[in-house]
């Protein structure tokens, strides 16, 4: 399956899963909000330019917004993580010239620890920005609320991301650098 088709299917699936599965799960607590949809941005292939990643992330966030009924709320954090993503990858990608390069960020292509750092930082950024925007537009900001919600949501998102990594072992088909 070509990368384009794969990512289009992912685009649709992530939005549907977030809108009709995770958003429908009865809440444990106000702070525990399961967000997973932004994993789509994290899984975009390496070979996209920065501009196109941001535009894709913006469109993706906006689609999510229309399903959740609050336009603009998800688009802004998605653009932020799409912007930060290349900087992080530059730092985390193994620097020595390896023979193979992979198509997209995964445990196999980055290694477990760097991939965890990559996911954790972007998840945290996304949630912090999202909760901040929420609090700003509700005008009911409390510090404890902000910290609590970001921490709890990051924890639950990390859990969900690891679960989806385990469940859907992406075939990390590598290509040689020579090609």
């Amino acid at each position: 399956m070509s990368s384009l088709v794969k990512n289009i299917i992912r685009f649709v699936l992530f939005i549907l899963v977030q809108a009709f599965v995770l958003d429908k799960v009865p809440q444990l607590h106000q702070y525990v909000k399961p967000w997973l949809y932004f994993l789509f941005v994290l899984w975009l292939p390496f070979n996209l330019s920065r501009i196109s990643i941001m535009i894709i992330a913006f469109m993706f966030g906006l689609c999510m917004d229309y399903f959740s009924g609050w336009p603009g709320l998800h688009a802004a954090p998605c653009v932020l993580i799409a912007y930060v993503r290349p900087f992080l990858l530059n730092v985390l990608l193994p620097q020595e010239k390896t023979e193979f390069s992979y198509a997209e960020p995964s445990i196999k292509s980055l290694g477990f620890a760097p991939y965890s750092v990559y996911v954790l930082i972007l998840t945290f950024l996304h949630h912090a920005y999202l909760v901040l925007l929420e609090a700003l537009s509700l005008q009911s900001g409390e510090f404890l609320y902000f910290i609590g919600k970001v921490t709890a949501a990051t924890a639950i998102s990390m859990l969900l991301i690891y679960l989806s990594e385990l469940l859907f072992q992406r075939k990390a088909r590598y290509r040689t650098n020579a090609a």
Partner: peptide, 20 residues
Amino acid sequence: FTFFMFLVLQGISWAILVKY
């Protein structure tokens, strides 16, 4: 250009959010 694009997209998101 990337940074400007980032700012523009953020601006659009904020505009939509505020208007909504």
